[in-house]
């Protein structure tokens, strides 16, 4: 069993999991009255656009996890001064940035079909844009400092301060301000979607998607860290 786990078997399982999410998220039909196990219910105000939830929410979820892990490794770096924690934090911040861009793009495509335009400066859109700028500045900071120790220390402090804004921008601000996004303060149409509007089948695919994307993040993060670590060790030699 251990040999099986150490082989590439787990990656093929992940491939099948994500493939299933893609097939279920794109091809399963939305019906007024669901009769089969693969039918999704029609959600008033969302219609066919509801399928974006299987990709947009997991990418936003991974953004939060990646930035949280980046902050965690930054704290570990400041406590231990171990440069490998800085590499771990950096790789996680890079992944967080990639998934943040994906969440913005998927949200923007959804906005085009739901609200008529790609961008509205809705509180949710504005907050994710601010988040992209904040973390973009982290990479600018890192590339501007040549001293390895100074770069690691400064970016760790900046990383911790940056993460303090994440709960505010992702969870608080878009919910207390009126806006177009489901779940905003004056939303009386579509939200909360997950708890009340989905049937069991849709919820199962949604949570399965969250789980699969989380595993994908873990795999890419480990791979990214190994590459950074090898690069660091080879540069040192």
């Amino acid at each position: 069993m251990q040999k099986l786990w150490q082989s590439n078997f787990k990656f093929y399982i992940l491939f099948l999991m994500i493939s299933f999410v893609l097939i279920a998220g794109i091809a399963f039909p939305i019906m007024e009255r669901p009769t089969a196990w693969f039918h999704y219910p029609f959600i008033q105000g969302l219609g066919e656009n509801a399928k974006i939830i299987f990709f947009h929410v997991p990418t936003a979820w991974i953004t939060v996890i990646a930035f949280f892990m980046s902050m965690y490794f930054s704290i570990r770096y400041l406590r231990s001064n171990d440069i490998f924690y800085d590499l771990k934090a950096h790789v996680s911040a890079q992944l967080g940035m990639i998934f943040c861009v994906l969440a913005t793009v998927t949200g923007s495509v959804w906005a085009k079909f739901a609200w008529g335009e790609f961008w509205h400066w809705d509180p949710r859109e504005t907050s994710i844009f601010a988040l992209l700028l904040i973390y973009g500045a982290l990479f600018a900071l890192r590339s501007a400092i040549e001293s390895e120790e100074k770069r690691a220390k400064l970016s760790a402090v900046y990383n911790i301060l940056s993460f303090l804004t994440v709960p505010f921008f992702i969870f608080i601000m878009p919910r207390i301000m009126p806006g177009l996004h489901p779940g905003s303060a004056d939303d009386d149409n579509a939200g909360p979607v997950v708890d009340f509007k989905m049937n069991a089948n849709m919820q199962a695919v949604f949570y399965f998607s969250l789980f699969s994307f989380t595993l994908l993040y873990v795999w890419i993060w480990r791979l990214g860290y190994k590459v950074s670590r090898l690069k660091y060790l080879l540069d040192k030699e």
Partner: peptide
């Protein structure tokens, strides 16, 4: 996926 698997293999060798 194929790109990531290829990278995984190269990293293991390195």
């Amino acid at each position: 996926f194929i790109f990531l698997m290829g990278l995984n293999k190269k990293v293991k060798e390195l």
